[in-house]
Amino acid sequence: MPSETPQAEVGPTGCPHRSGPHSAKGSLEKGSPEDKEAKEPLWIRPDAPSRCTWQLGRPASESPHHHTAPAKSPKILPDILKKIGDTPMVRINKIGKKFGLKCELLAKCEFFNAGGSVKDRISLRMIEDAERDGTLKPGDTIIEPTSGNTGIGLALAAAVRGYRCIIVMPEKMSSEKVDVLRALGAEIVRTPTNARFDSPESHVGVAWRLKNEIPNSHILDQYRNASNPLAHYDTTADEILQQCDGKLDMLVASVGTGGTITGIARKLKEKCPGCRIIGVDPEGSILAEPEELNQTEQTTYEVEGIGYDFIPTVLDRTVVDKWFKSNDEEAFTFARMLIAQEGLLCGGSAGSTVAVAVKAAQELQEGQRCVVILPDSVRNYMTKFLSDRWMLQKGFLKEEDLTEKKPWWWHLRVQELGLSAPLTVLPTITCGHTIEILREKGFDQAPVVDEAGVILGMVTLGNMLSSLLAGKVQPSDQVGKVIYKQFKQIRLTDTLGRLSHILEMDHFALVV
């Protein structure tokens, strides 16, 4: 994948999101292997301009796509893939009243899908469409860049269908997702969380590099694949309309690839034109409109599966009536509230959605109805927002919020430890010299600072030695090549209790 991002070429006709291997024109390309080798690009942008032909009021008969309808489940399912879809609609009884809503608040519980998330729908649909058009064949390999849930859905379907599955996901995604993927037989590649989507090191860039190296491999490409919004247009939206008897006044959905909100909203605009569509985008993402909503100094966020630093091709923002931004604290607070007060075992993005819903639905009156999409299960986040310690460490809970008995030293300040200034190293000294210094002084790690004293990161003896043994660096290389740029900081005025929580999850903390 090139470091400079080429513009994806656009073909003359058809839909841009065809499933299957992508040609340089962004659509299915038939021909000899030699032709494909000559024409197939190194990668295709996940934010390529959409060429979708959908228009409100256009006859369904003019759609270029294969459409399906929700099917009634048999008493005995032939395999677990038949437990994807037909998820329950559940009334939220307490939270709406707590925040003064007059309307009825309903939750579409997508964590009841077989793999635990709304992404099971698009995973199965992308595979079925690729099999139907002859792209996927027995023994082929599926590769997908994902925040985890699409990966789980694909790995689940691949396990049943017999495909090899490789999932490329950023490091910030939970260990629970990784464990589930491994249990399903998927191979996992992790990428830096802070890598831009168009960087060769991003999950998108690495996935395309693997595709170019592995024979008979395919990126189904949830960011561009029409099967993504079509899955929701054909099934999720129809289920909502049936469950609500066609009567709903507002739908609120958090947005990642945009397939969920695009597919549902398009069908609702056709069948229930008075329904307002509300999009939820986390602070630090750029999906919301108008652009002024996205202006923030924050560039990272903890909530998973929603928000991006690019506009995915499948996201149709014209069908969203209003956007709201959400933050991590309210997302996790509301997710825990949904679990504790409503018994809905949902993930953090569901918290984002409901946090926005109780604001947006203030305009609705008694007798009206708001539906929220709860995308995934708490299963993926047992060591994250479900953990009091994690919430404390991230600053989303305060010590006084917890009532468990603490040891005698818990409320003492870090400054009472009488710490001395640490050994520091410059980023320009060599790895070999740094190892000598650390061994001589008896230290395992040291902060790396520039000549102005600005902290650049941390270097550890173990990481340097393993990097040297693996051949990633040489003793003569500058130590700046092996620094940890993500590390926890703590102030002298913070409590030892807070430091204790940090050290339970990290090997060190830097006192500043």
Results as ranks from 00 to 15, higher is better:
26 G>T: 08
209 R>C: 09
22 H>M: 02
211 K>V: 13
185 G>H: 05
157 A>D: 10
80 I>H: 03
169 M>D: 02
251 L>S: 01
80 I>T: 10
52 C>N: 03
264 I>K: 05
211 K>A: 11
202 S>A: 11
251 L>N: 00
105 L>D: 00
186 A>N: 03
180 V>G: 02
234 D>F: 07
165 C>W: 02
153 G>V: 03
144 E>S: 04
262 T>K: 05
173 M>A: 04
156 L>V: 06
192 P>T: 08
113 N>K: 05
117 S>P: 04
100 G>K: 08
79 D>E: 13
148 G>M: 00
54 W>N: 06
272 C>W: 12
163 Y>D: 00
245 D>L: 02
166 I>D: 04
159 A>V: 15
21 P>D: 14
123 S>D: 03
164 R>H: 14
239 E>P: 05
90 V>H: 03
184 L>V: 04
94 K>M: 12
49 P>I: 08
109 C>E: 00
85 G>Y: 01
94 K>V: 03
246 G>I: 05
264 I>V: 15
158 A>N: 02
246 G>A: 02
195 A>I: 07
2 P>V: 10
87 T>I: 12
164 R>A: 06
118 V>D: 03
39 K>C: 06
205 G>K: 07
48 A>E: 02
17 H>I: 12
155 A>F: 06
214 I>W: 04
39 K>V: 08
14 G>W: 08
230 L>N: 13
266 R>L: 02
124 L>V: 11
16 P>Q: 06
243 Q>P: 05
180 V>E: 06
81 L>P: 07
94 K>T: 12
99 F>D: 03
231 A>F: 07
64 P>H: 07
52 C>Q: 02
166 I>Y: 06
64 P>N: 07
240 I>A: 01
188 I>G: 04
276 R>C: 10
222 Q>V: 02
136 L>F: 08
33 P>A: 06
169 M>G: 04
106 L>N: 07
117 S>K: 05
32 S>A: 12
116 G>S: 07
61 S>M: 04
95 I>Q: 00
101 L>R: 00
271 K>G: 04
171 E>S: 05
154 L>W: 00
259 G>F: 00
141 T>P: 08
55 Q>E: 13
276 R>A: 12
165 C>V: 05
48 A>Q: 09
122 I>T: 05
186 A>F: 01
196 R>S: 09
96 G>P: 09
164 R>F: 04
33 P>V: 14
209 R>K: 12
